[in-house]
Design a protein around this nucleic acid. Structure first.
Lengths: 277, 277
DNA sequence: CGTCTGCTTGATTCCCGTCAACACCCGTGG
DNA sequence: CCACGGGTGTTGACGGGAATCAAGCAGACG
């Protein structure tokens, strides 16, 4: 750990400043990294769900198969992400997870998360924030899949990845990045056929909006793309500092005096918000 | 509260037995219920996000508007659900919430959740389980929207609601229930046009799979419907007792001795799961 | 009894899936 | 050096599922 700041620490720090204790606690989740090859399976639908996994290097995705043989990608994981949070309350995996490219992952059992709940109030809160952010991400993708046409879907997805990389990968240039996905993966991700992904990419290229060669993508005209995709990055850029600053916490587990603090008084009504449609 | 068991307590109890202390703590979230009319707005996209809200009575839904004027429902809330968890890490609402029918809700500030993190390990864990379950629900809906045709979408949705009601509403008969949604809401929920919802309902009716009149739905042939929709209720029926029994907890906040328990030792490797595609 | 809202049904259009042929890249082996 | 083959991306022709537009219908309610 000397000199090297782990992905997960960086990820958590994005939400709130961590004490050294918290950092250490967090790092216990990242023991024993193991390398995994491109295309390897971390787990399959139906496997026992007893662990989470942090992604240190490489991209990964979770997916579901359907009866008709098609496949839908559920989530795309970038370095620093936690994989498998979804199955915390479940005994079986509900989706498989595969690596897009060679990478490094660290498994840790569900119980470690419970330990974390006991030991660190700040980490608990951040973890909850991460879970809620993940939900927001999925929600946005849901809207994308349900209501937009192929062009918008693709544009939106490219913008999402670009923004996420910007936040987690220091120094990546906005709008130009490595994109190791095959068009088949794009298809499974966006609910399209591979053929149509190709066509749509061409269309965006002809419109001068994106440039792509091999596995590298450049977004040429971000404002136009955002307009096209109805993209609003606010859903990706929030954090929880405002919450904590409104209600300060000691960075470590609160002393008993703090614990005895009564909950903030019942919220005083007078909403005025409730309005008939 | 005397004699009456609140929805939220019942909801949490589904995951794990609650101590009296926990029940009391939980009930502080449900102070000051207020009645809300059908069609009223709890909040709109872009509003400040400082509170959650528990739904005591009536159905509600969250939604997003798109640039082109169409609308996508994101989540459907039934009595006992917590509304707004998604925005825990955000300062603004990312989706609006409206009531389907007359009901009762209880607002409580985000900070109350932080108090809960400090005070009850069990409630924290359950809350996390609820959040993860919500994510699973959205994920399933995402797959539904992305990959299935209108018939399957509708069938799947009806099955989902049926199953959820079965779990939270005691004594509701499986496969026959009150369904207060207009076809326009179905459309916004399933990513279809209202016209096509009507056609699809007719098709399912003709096939002898569902019966519907006014706002009451009966699922006539559950096995056939499940086959049709590729529906697997496992994603809805798990809970977290296995996790806790594998790693018992005192029901109240752990004594210091418990806190000092070292985290379970680093997970011992030997996966054997990692396989090349 | 008239009006309003929500549901149904028909005709037409269009986006995207499917099928199929072909180009391309790259590693292998002769 | 070229031939070969598999995986991946491109392009065209065709068809189908669902959107859209529009008109008719049925309750609900004043």
């Amino acid at each position: 750990m000397e000199g090297y700041e782990s992905c997960i620490v960086r990820h958590f720090s994005y939400y709130y400043e961590l004490s050294e204790d918290d950092k250490a606690l967090l790092c216990t989740l990242e023991q024993s990294p193991m390398t995994v090859e491109a295309g390897s399976t971390l787990w399959k639908e139906g496997d026992d769900a007893k662990e989470f996994c942090t992604l240190k290097k490489g991209w990964a995705y979770s997916y579901r198969f359907l009866e008709n043989g098609s496949r839908q990608l559920v989530e795309l994981y970038l370095p620093g992400d936690i994989i498998g949070l979804r199955e915390f309350a479940f005994t079986q995996r509900l989706a498989g997870v595969e690596m897009v490219e060679d990478g490094e992952v660290c498994f840790f059992p569900h119980q470690h998360l419970l330990d974390l709940f006991r030991r660190s109030f700040v980490l608990t809160s951040i973890l909850f924030a991460i879970a809620s952010r993940q939900q927001v991400l999925i929600t946005e993708r849901l809207v994308n899949l349900a209501r937009r046409n192929a062009r918008q879907k693709l544009a939106h997805f490219l913008l999402e990845v670009s923004q996420r990389l910007l936040q987690t990968q220091r120094g990546s240039l906005s709008g130009s990045f490595h994109m190791p996905l095959s068009q088949e993966l794009f298809a499974d991700l966006l609910g399209l056929s591979p053929v149509h992904v190709s066509r749509t990419f061409s269309a965006l290229h002809e419109a001068g909006l994106v440039h792509r060669e091999r596995h590298h993508v450049t977004l040429l005209d971000l404002p136009a793309l955002k307009r096209e995709a109805d993209f609003d990055e606010r859903y990706l850029i929030d954090n929880m500092r405002p919450l904590f600053t409104a209600y300060p916490v000691s960075a470590t587990r609160p002393a008993d005096s703090a614990v005895e603090t009564p909950p903030t008084p019942f919220w005083p009504g007078g909403r005025g918000l409730i309005a008939k449609r």
